[in-house]
Design a protein around this nucleic acid. Structure first.
Lengths: 78, 78
DNA sequence: AAATATTTGTACGTATGTATG
DNA sequence: GCATACATACGTACAAATATT
């Protein structure tokens, strides 16, 4: 899966939407580790800051919790 | 005024705090134009993205409103 | 205790796109 | 068309936190 640089939706929002979909579909269940920044870079062909912005979107939605030096995880329900 | 790269507080938070202070002090009253990204770069000796992050902080606090192609303005009270 | 690997955090400089006036 | 200002993205570098060896 690669982002579409020509789409009206910017890459960081595309990636955020994809990850959100995986969470809501249960593909990434609560407590699961979200792919690391480096992994997202490789999977979607995006730069580091772009990957971080996508995670930032999900963090602002309280869908994930991020901890430096550890990783990003799907937020627990409730 | 220049940011301190050796301070524990990162530059983008330093700049956000300074601007927040100007707003709360009335130096930047409601409706006033906040210095542009380019102006902040020059005033604080920071990069473009760093300036934008500072503004982002204030935007998340609803202290300013940002409009593409126009500028950034101190939010109206209420 | 110390070194190493992994992961997130911050910042740089640059380029291009989009919106407004 | 042009100038200004914000929006997004690239690639790179180093710092900080965590866990493991």
């Amino acid at each position: 899966m690669v982002v579409d640089h020509d789409a009206p939706e910017p890459p960081y929002l595309q990636v955020a939407a994809i990850l959100r979909g995986r969470i809501q579909a249960g593909q990434l269940p609560p407590g699961a580790r979200v792919p690391s920044i480096t992994a997202l870079m490789g999977e979607f062909g995006i730069a580091r800051n772009t990957a971080r912005r996508a995670i930032e979107v999900l963090k602002d939605e309280d869908l994930v919790t991020v901890r430096q030096g550890w990783g990003t995880f799907v937020a627990l329900p409730g």
